[in-house]
Design a protein around this nucleic acid. Sequence first.
DNA 1: AGCTCTTATGAATCATTGA
DNA 2: GTCAATGATTCATAAGAGC
Lengths: 277, 277
Amino acid sequence: MNSRAKSNTESTEIHCGDCQQLIKAGVVPPGSVNLIVTSPPYADQRKANYGGVHPDSYVRWFLPKAEALFECLADDGSFVLNIKEKAVSGERHTYVLELIMELRRSGWLWVEEYCWHKKNCYPGKWPNRFRDSWERLLHFTKSRKFKMRQDSVMVPMGDWRLNRLQNLSATDRVRDPSRHRNGFGKKVEKWVGREKAYPTNVLHLATECGFKGHPATFPKALPEWFIRLFTDEGDTVLDPFAGSGTTLVAAHDLKRHGIGIEISPEYCDLIKDRITP
Amino acid sequence: MNSRAKSNTESTEIHCGDCQQLIKAGVVPPGSVNLIVTSPPYADQRKANYGGVHPDSYVRWFLPKAEALFECLADDGSFVLNIKEKAVSGERHTYVLELIMELRRSGWLWVEEYCWHKKNCYPGKWPNRFRDSWERLLHFTKSRKFKMRQDSVMVPMGDWRLNRLQNLSATDRVRDPSRHRNGFGKKVEKWVGREKAYPTNVLHLATECGFKGHPATFPKALPEWFIRLFTDEGDTVLDPFAGSGTTLVAAHDLKRHGIGIEISPEYCDLIKDRITP
DNA sequence: AGCTCTTATGAATCATTGA
DNA sequence: GTCAATGATTCATAAGAGC
């Protein structure tokens, strides 16, 4: 199970323990990971499962782990962190903001904040806020030049294209560039026959309701999207807070080599059940 | 024009000048404003119009203005700030995060971060990121108990159903293969008999394309939503960076007393043209 | 009125060139 | 070398024109 032979790209490793300790112990070789995508235990949530981390000490808890992750990530690799701050005594807590700034201070580049717009969010009603329907997907890298396969996540264009491109008017080709600083009109011809467009930085996905047994299931489509975007086949994907193993299942299905680290023995067993056919 | 008599709830004041100076000068009485909703000039944008503020000095530029706003806001009032950090040399800049923390340090409560998911975002393509399709709507208050009229922004179930059906674009279907038509049908059935539902903290709106004369038009539906949510009829709404006056038009239409402050004389004139019938 | 088709344009970002 | 201006790239919406 511990073999990382590139020849078998569909192999998946599961390690049971604390990710910081295991990585420091050499379980994941330095620079060997192409993508880290994870949804760590939220502050003060999942108390029953993880023991809970208080919001005020969340940054202190996370930083050394991020340092370990930095070591094992390849220079052109990406780190995608799914997180959302909780509300504490009527306010949004600032630990996520502080975490971003501290991670930058320790060498990470904060390239982008993708937005996961949840189609079906958790129900509830409070006097001072509505249901929280979005989460942050923070994208960090080690370098300004990183691997990104934009073509692999293109989406079908809107129907507008069908009408738009049937008749190319003269204006399409002659849009005055002195007034509008974009040659968009000129290039419309290029679109004939094109079926797909690049997506935006908002992922509009539903949460997964089907899988029981772990409280924080994020939809498989989420890691899948980032795995397709930031890795090639045969690359290595790491989830240091594997939980129920959704990222690893996605990596396996996409023929990437998966490494999962999970501190809870029960979840480790659960992941193994999920991965092995 | 300067009368703030509550009797005339539809009156709208326009003041031309710097909001900080004008408020300090007493143009807006302390504690008289129920809602501040504004979209300030973004860092280093609108150079032609405002002179531009460098991202690195944005917090320093904004803080004293926020202090003035604090003074004129009622104790149970709300401050809604529409903002989004720009990308600087391959990274998202952190001035918005810093601003949130500094505002908290100076007495504001950061109650919530609403998300404006823009249906039509600016086009473009870059090697390291996709098009930016969302902006922040930061909600600050002076007190944990603030005025909130949740019922006033409930969405009719019928419209909701209609919109969902219409918005089921090809993109929706591809990104979320788990959403089957039968599953959707089930969900709709669940809502039969119920007339209205509470919204979430994500607003899914298009940007306004048509309005000329000001570079930063945000859709009228945006201030409208917050005005209905955080004020009653006859209350006072302030926009200290009025721009083209969209917030004031919304306030006027909803029978709120509007106060607009705008530093550019041309825009002041433009607002007056827009307000007066 | 309702439909189709046409057209303008929007808080952008990065790479390159020039001062 | 640092900084500022210019060029190249891209998509969905709404308003308007035409039928």
